[in-house]
């Protein structure tokens, strides 16, 4: 009897797919989704108010809305909502043990969890961006066409970073909040190349690169000199590397880590 039942196991791939679906469902039905919707709603109202006034250029749209509201706040929060929940919430609810004792190899568990979080985070950031740009009217739509790759890659990198937090810390959400709201801002506004330690720096580099056609450039006192932008392709390469590295780091740590609590 034992052999017949065991022989009906179709293999780790279908289990992995099922875990992916399960994580997706659970994450989507969680409180984070509501918070994200609420934040996006608030932002939308502001954008509608902004776009009601006289004609605007894409440059103004990018500087006043996209960078100020979307990139510095909504983007990290969307990624954080799903990234840290990936494994830390399972750990918090003590259900991680069911995954750890299942015959799925650990890297596959991480892969499934990670792709579920990534899918949701990408859906939110992309949908959020589209909504914000659409509400921004014509200049918004123009900006959308050139900006989406920057946001796509930033989302991936942010998510991998927060997944890493999720694997490493029990209170990943709190740490990630402190990171996204405080450390990113702090480092991002430092002079010199210190700001290259923040993910948002590369996002902005990509945006300035892509938006150069509209005349978008670092604003504020000192402007471009203080910002020390990297060229677009370099920033993009760094984002790829960073995302990949963080993913591998998370995968590796999750594969060898003992969750003994």
């Amino acid at each position: 009897m034992s052999t017949t039942i065991t022989s009906r196991i179709t293999g780790p791939l279908s289990a992995c797919l099922h875990l992916f679906g399960l994580s997706l469902r659970r994450l989507f039905r969680s409180r984070q989704t509501m918070i994200c919707a609420l934040l996006l709603g608030l932002a939308s109202i502001a954008v509608v108010a902004w776009s009601m006034r006289r004609e605007r250029s894409p440059e103004e749209f990018i500087e006043e809305i996209f960078l100020a509201v979307y990139v510095s706040f909504l983007l990290p929060i969307f990624c954080l909502s799903y990234g840290t929940a990936g494994i830390a919430s399972d750990r918090e609810e003590q259900t991680l043990v069911y995954l750890l004792v299942s015959p799925l190899p650990r890297p596959l568990i991480f892969l499934a969890k990670c792709s579920a979080s990534l899918l949701l985070a990408l859906a939110w950031t992309m949908a959020g961006m589209s909504v914000v740009c659409w509400l921004g009217g014509l200049p918004g739509m123009e900006a959308l066409h050139v900006l989406w790759p920057a946001i796509l890659w930033s989302t991936v990198t942010y998510l991998m970073l927060f997944m890493l937090f999720s694997v490493m810390f029990r209170r990943a959400t709190m740490i990630a909040l402190a990171y996204a709201l405080f450390i990113e801002t702090l480092i991002g506004n430092m002079p010199g190349i210190a700001k290259r330690l923040a993910v948002s720096f590369y996002t902005r580099c990509l945006i300035f690169d892509a938006g150069s056609a509209f005349g978008v450039s670092p604003s504020g006192p000192g402007g471009a000199e203080l910002f020390v932008a990297l060229p677009g392709p370099t920033a993009q390469a760094i984002l790829y590397l960073l995302g990949g590295g963080l993913f591998l780091g998370g995968l590796l740590i999750f594969s060898v880590r003992e969750y003994s609590d």
Binding site: H18, S102, L104
Partner: peptide, 16 residues
């Protein structure tokens, strides 16, 4: 759910 996480197909998981 646990059955599926062990790699059973939907139909077998239901039986199990």
């Amino acid at each position: 759910t646990m059955a599926k996480l062990h790699g059973f197909s939907n139909r077998v998981a239901r039986e199990r």
